[in-house]
Design a protein around this nucleic acid. Sequence first.
DNA 1: TGATTTGGCAACCAAAAGGTTGCATTAATC
DNA 2: GATTAATGCAACCTTTTGGTTGCCAAATCA
Lengths: 109, 109
Amino acid sequence: MLKGEDSPARLFAALGDATRLGLIGRLSDGSERSIVQLGDGLPISRQAVAKHLDVLLGAGLVRRTKSGREVLFTLRREAVAEAQDWLRTVGTQWDDALGRFKNFIENQP
Amino acid sequence: MLKGEDSPARLFAALGDATRLGLIGRLSDGSERSIVQLGDGLPISRQAVAKHLDVLLGAGLVRRTKSGREVLFTLRREAVAEAQDWLRTVGTQWDDALGRFKNFIENQP
DNA sequence: TGATTTGGCAACCAAAAGGTTGCATTAATC
DNA sequence: GATTAATGCAACCTTTTGGTTGCCAAATCA
């Protein structure tokens, strides 16, 4: 995947994994959770969870803060909005095009 | 990635590539385009484009129809809406949680 | 008919992704 | 001070990804 770039592709790629969507789900309540907490119940190792969180961090989807010996993660709502925006643009373009097409058809003699 | 499953993760993974986002962009005007047309201008081979379209098809993001010797693709707006829905849910949960928190803070003595 | 265009299929490749294990480090507890 | 808990770092492994090239098949066009 793209490394340095900060494109919507990076964002979507980070969302493109069931485990990561799960993590985001857990954080969507606005809570602040540690790696261990976030990995609780998952069938993968702590390191695997940490790697997933790294991906989310790299895509700007989460915020990382240290507190004592643990590292806390929170969701970055702005990033979610960014992804939404991209999809909205595509959807809107499509809707507009469809609208023009319908209009064209209806005005045929 | 997940093979048979029809999860949002599959959808986002398909969106998680700059080339594919580009293809979707080209189709977002409601047009119907062939593989060659879609690949026009891109610095990759026709087969690479075809593979990307396969991924999009697998995620339900495009529709495929044959016409003579060519294969035409169109965007499936419903799939875009699906992705939007997922993000909206996350965003809404977050907003609600933030709202409750603000309310709690403001009502502190 | 013969050449050209548009695709499909398959083998092959290098790099990235998703995981694992082992060991070191740092902070909190007893 | 010793033990435990929460991470970080690094090496290693297997599967997926994103791409390529070569060759075959089916429509189209001259």
